[in-house]
């Protein structure tokens, strides 16, 4: 059994590390809709990669990073209309992906695997990419922890302290986009949002410090994924929905905590 699930379990741990930091920041900065927009928009990068026959990771990383910068600009410059504009970017990215897929000859079963994800298909190359992104995220949070926390609480005050809060916010969205790219093969575009936010939403209730929120959400994210993988192995069902259902059950239970 271990031979079959070792890579998925390693992937769970690596995605769990990213969820710990980025998921927690998404929740406290209330950027769930923006994350959804980047995740769905990433389909544009996948479509482009399949059409031009280039690396999906490279294409999706660049495409989502551009989307992150556009979304950062929109939310900073047009805060009153950000919800509608986020929705536009959400649909635009997907549309670009669908157009390029329809132009690509043959049946693109690969594209569907990115929509729904399959953590059991994660390979060594994917793990190396995940590890690299985790390293970037961990170095970023070590140096920028205090700034990210200040930005999440009061962006204006951070600016007053001489730190460019808009650049920091844009960098956070770029990190979010890279986390999405590293997780998309395993979790899938459609379900990624649940896994990014549920562990942090639960963790938030159990601690008064953001640092511990990150630790708890990382552990929960990994446990949910490992649980989903084991259930999918024994009951022969798709792993990602199993992960999301386990996480949602725990979220519902946690909502009863005052």
């Amino acid at each position: 059994m271990w031979d079959l699930i070792n890579y998925p379990i390693y992937a769970s741990i690596l995605i769990g590390i990213a969820i710990a930091v980025i998921g927690s920041l998404i929740v406290i900065n209330k950027t769930t809709a923006i994350t959804g927009s980047i995740a769905h928009g990433s389909f544009g990068g996948i479509g482009l990669a399949l059409y031009f026959g280039i690396s999906v990771i490279l294409s999706a990383s660049l495409f989502t990073a551009v989307l992150a910068i556009i979304l950062a600009f929109i939310t900073i410059k047009f805060p009153h209309r950000q919800d509608s504009l986020i929705g536009v970017i959400w649909a635009l990215g997907m549309s670009i992906g669908i157009i390029f897929l329809s132009l690509t000859p043959g049946y693109q079963s690969d594209a569907l695997s990115y929509l729904f994800g399959n953590i059991l298909l994660v390979g060594k190359k994917d793990l190396i990419f995940m590890g690299t992104i985790d390293l970037v995220i961990l170095i970023s949070i070590i140096f920028l922890y205090n700034r990210f926390l200040a930005m999440s609480y009061d962006k204006e005050f951070l600016t007053l302290r001489g730190i460019n809060a808009n650049y920091l916010y844009t960098y956070f969205l770029i990190l979010t986009s890279l986390t999405i790219v590293m997780s998309v093969r395993a979790i899938g575009i459609i379900l990624i949002l649940a896994l990014f936010t549920i562990p942090s939403l639960i963790a938030e209730k159990w601690t008064k410090k953001f640092f511990y929120m990150m630790i708890i959400s990382g552990i929960l994210g990994t446990v949910f994924m490992a649980g989903g993988i084991i259930i999918s192995f024994y009951y022969d069902i798709s792993a990602t929905p199993a992960i999301v259902i386990i996480a949602s059950v725990f979220l519902l239970i946690s909502l009863f905590k005052k």
């Binding site: 601690t207 008064k208 410090k209 953001f210």
Partner: peptide
């Protein structure tokens, strides 16, 4: 003006 839900002391 701020969200008080952030886990911050």
């Amino acid at each position: 003006s701020f969200s008080i839900d952030i886990p911050i002391t």
